[in-house]
Design a protein around this nucleic acid. Sequence first.
DNA 1: TCCCGAATTTGACGATCATCAATCCGAACT
DNA 2: AGTTCGGATTGATGATCGTCAAATTCGGGA
Lengths: 231, 231
Amino acid sequence: MSTQACADCVVRNRAICRALDAESLAEFSRSGRRRRLKAGETLRWQGDEDAPCATVISGAVKLSVVEEDGDERIVGLGLPSDFVGSPFDEASEITTTALTDCEVCLFPRNAFSAALESNRDLETELLKRTMADLKAARMSRSRSAALPARARIAALLLDLKTRGQGCAATVDPDYLELPLTRGEIAQFLDLRIETVSREFGALEEAGLIARQGRRGLRFLDEDGLRGLTEV
Amino acid sequence: MSTQACADCVVRNRAICRALDAESLAEFSRSGRRRRLKAGETLRWQGDEDAPCATVISGAVKLSVVEEDGDERIVGLGLPSDFVGSPFDEASEITTTALTDCEVCLFPRNAFSAALESNRDLETELLKRTMADLKAARMSRSRSAALPARARIAALLLDLKTRGQGCAATVDPDYLELPLTRGEIAQFLDLRIETVSREFGALEEAGLIARQGRRGLRFLDEDGLRGLTEV
DNA sequence: TCCCGAATTTGACGATCATCAATCCGAACT
DNA sequence: AGTTCGGATTGATGATCGTCAAATTCGGGA
């Protein structure tokens, strides 16, 4: 990963690295690598036990926990410019897996942790983001959990639209390619596949969205969706 | 708040200030004040618009969000040694309120934010905690939301017991004075008061807990409770 | 193009929890 | 002690969502 690559990076000004000047960035980038992942691939750093740290460049990843009984829960999403990973945890219970084909900027946990130590600005930036994420996680948890299934789905769709904004080939701002399957949406929102499916049907029926194929989605009435989440 | 007070502080070795040596601590402590709060009192710093930052010393506080429609949701709890506050947010949507009479070590947001800047170790410690909190929030969200009401309550009781451990006058380790009313538990777990009440009844019926008065609680079968949360 | 398999959709039914309403308890007060 | 008021409990009923089961559609490969 060269500095040149960083300068060209589509998330250069939104990811944590925006806290770095050209010089620090050059050094920082030496410990990481840009990688492409196929959907379903788990984030690892070759030969490293620890879960790596990464910035998502394109595509989407899921943060998930596998319970003893084998079933998996999605606890968070990583979209372009998001940071994922636990620099201070040698063993993280949270696994990061590509939902779609995607590009990430990957760092071994140790190296990232060292970079934090040697770069104050980076650490401050990460602290700010993490506190913001914590607040968002808390608020969305509370907002979401008590809401009916339909509203939870509406909130997720709006969140995906917002967070996907300003990235990639956003040709049509009202079109969204879902990075999640119905099953994954269910795992994330604590619903069943069947419920998710039914509610998608209901949202379409109500004229709020239009489904295009399995993962294609068109927003027809964004305010209507927002209204559902504000009950 | 003198250094002496800090040296004697019951959470000295568990709160963020454990990252500080005697000298830094002395300086750090000058910007804060130890305060007592009565139940229901909101955390403020006299004459400061911003929500303050604080370390909880004794008692319990709630982090809550008030929706436009007026109803309140509890999004997190602050127990002894926990840090609360958003040093980087001038306006935080999250309000901190005492659940019980309690003691806190309070800092104006600005001063705390400045202390972070001038003290690298403090910042690192806070980052670690925040990342751990984020992980805990994500995992508990996922674990909790899909679980039936009974299990959610069991999980909360166990969490309160664990986090209350090693503090205060923990004379009897199996006794817990609930810092939350039934209504607050409901707000936190996204249930109704009636459901909480019924499930408490069921837990007692099942011989897992014994209620003593309104807020007193005795753990009779901790493993049994844990079993409920691991479905 | 056709076919196959997995993902999705649809349907019927039941359990859990919210809702509405009434009663009960307990702590602080006179 | 008696009163009183807010919190807590209990009861009856219905809506939402989970469960089980079957049908359907999409998308990739032969």
